[in-house]
């Protein structure tokens, strides 16, 4: 029992707060999409999406409270994903 309690327990109010923030960010991203900002529309939408994803990862998936093994391997995955995306774009953009 005490072994398990060492694992972080998310209180309801924290989870509700995260949900509230996620819903507000959704409203913002929908609202911004109606405004034509030229080339900035996509980066803004992706920044908001990245913020939402971070909140889900950190709190709903409790990545914030995980040990090194999961945190480092997760960041490693994101690193390789970034390589895949950026290298593809170097190829496509400067061909």
């Amino acid at each position: 029992m005490d072994k398990h309690t060492s694992q972080h327990l998310m209180p309801y109010h924290t989870l509700a707060l995260v949900l509230g923030t996620l819903l507000i960010l959704t409203a913002v991203t929908v609202g911004v999409s109606y405004v034509d900002l030229g080339i900035f529309n996509v980066p803004i939408a992706l920044t908001i999406a990245a913020t939402k994803v971070s909140l889900v990862l950190l709190f709903f998936m409790h990545l914030k409270y995980e040990g090194k093994a999961i945190v480092v391997s997760f960041l490693g995955t994101i690193f390789f994903l970034a390589i895949m995306i950026s290298f593809t774009f170097w190829d496509v953009a400067f061909r």
Partner: peptide, 12 residues
Amino acid sequence: LISSFTVAASIT
């Protein structure tokens, strides 16, 4: 988003 919240809450 709401369902993600309820799943996380169910663990609690």
